[in-house]
């Protein structure tokens, strides 16, 4: 049986973090880490690039702001001019303060929903999606380092040695 992946299971995220640092410093490429909650500071260690989600969020916010202003301009200024508190008609600018609260809401709405949907798409999460956790205990109280042997020049024994010496509770080959 040829081994493709090594899974090191840990009982504590701090131990996992130290182990991941040790592995990376010895030149091992960590494929992924599974954890029931975000581990503070793990991303730069295993080489996960910084997220660009907030940039997308900013753009969605701008879109939401534009949509709201277009909606106000079309419905209340252009198509059916409304008397807004006795302010001059036919002018978006002179009625703008009255539109700001809803424009703000629309900005937040589009930014938050846009970011949530982007997150789901980027991670291919959808209803009925089957979990790809190598070990279901990582959804409960265990933490796992996943190492792909084809990405590493080191032998399975050497990697297992590092994992064991840095406190892995359980090491499985797949």
């Amino acid at each position: 049986m040829s081994t493709k992946e090594i899974h090191g299971l840990f009982g504590d995220e701090e131990i996992l973090l130290a182990s991941a640092k040790e592995l990376v410093s010895k030149g091992v490429h960590v494929k992924d880490v599974f954890s029931p909650f975000p581990i503070h500071g793990i991303d730069p260690v295993i080489g996960v690039p910084p997220t660009r989600l907030h940039i997308a969020g900013f753009i969605y916010g701008l879109v939401g702001m534009g949509l709201a202003l277009f909606m106000f301009w079309f419905t209340l200024i252009m198509d059916w001019p409304m008397n807004i508190g006795g302010k001059p008609n036919f002018s978006l600018l002179q009625n703008l303060p009255a539109f700001i609260p809803v424009t703000f809401e629309m900005t937040v709405f589009c930014a938050s929903h846009g970011m949530a949907v982007t997150y789901f798409m980027r991670n291919t999460i959808y209803p009925g999606k089957k979990s790809w956790n190598p070990d279901l205990r990582t959804t409960d109280d265990k933490f796992l380092i996943q190492i792909d042997l084809s990405e590493n020049s080191m032998s399975a024994e050497e990697i297992e040695g590092i994992l064991k010496s840095t406190g892995a509770e359980e090491i499985t080959q797949k």
């Binding site: 508190g85 006795g86 303060p97 609260p101």
Partner: peptide, 11 residues
């Protein structure tokens, strides 16, 4: 803005 907007709107 909250201070300005309400006063501007109520006039």
């Amino acid at each position: 803005f909250s201070q300005f907007m309400l006063i501007w709107y109520a006039n």
